[in-house]
Design a binder for these strands. Structure first.
Lengths: 112, 112
DNA sequence: AATAATACATAATTTTCTTAGGTATATAAA
DNA sequence: TTTATATACCTAAGAAAATTATGTATTATT
């Protein structure tokens, strides 16, 4: 688990990347997917996640589809057509930022 | 210039890396060095820098040496012996975080 | 029956940064 | 010579983003 300081500012980028790749996901699913993919090193908190999802929806970047699963609701989020562009830009900007930080901190990243 | 959101949480790491490599630097020098090294993509603001330097000093991670240059003062910061360990840990943690983000966002970093 | 997991949400507080200002000296340009 | 720019420190009010702590409710497991 990384110090929360490090993860600051990455939430929107992570959400938009996952939703770009997965067509539709719901909040609870996002937190678990991120935890799984990072081996528990990044754990999104609901207090940060839900307000961010709501904000992205209000900005027209995400759209929602509320589904009933038994007696429980599940709110699926998808990237809107106009949101796709924003998502790509966010990820690209983060990628450039990483390159800058790798240079600045003189790091040797593992290449996948 | 990256969106400020992206840079959030990286200030301490940047400061500690620069001071680890450069023995001693003063605040104004740090902002200019970072701007120079990143081609203007990262510009530290004084309102963020100085309080952080003061906090790191209060924590015993940095020590200061005030020098008179003409009639002006210049406050040099250095990493203390015990601070060296903190600095290394910070940079290492950031390095691991980068690897995690590269995997999570499916990025291909430039290798230096 | 009690606990954990699923699934949503908000509100108070804290952390961190931005914006905007303040002080003062030295240098370059108009 | 006055004005602007650069050097060099600093703080305080406010905004932004996250944490922590709750709250509601259903479903599955022990």
């Amino acid at each position: 688990m990384y110090s929360s300081e490090l993860i600051k500012g990455t939430l929107k980028t992570i959400i938009l990347k996952l939703l770009s790749d997965n067509d539709k996901m719901y909040g609870y699913e996002i937190t678990h997917k991120v935890k799984e993919l990072t081996g528990g090193k990044i754990q999104l908190t609901e207090g940060a996640l839900y307000p961010t999802l709501h904000a992205l929806e209000a900005q027209g970047i995400l759209s929602t589809d509320v589904v009933n699963v038994g007696n429980r609701i599940r709110k699926y989020y998808s990237v809107t057509p106009s949101g796709k562009k924003v998502a790509t830009e966010k990820v690209n900007e983060f990628s450039e930022f990483l390159d800058t930080m790798i240079f600045l901190l003189d790091l040797q990243p593992k290449v996948g």
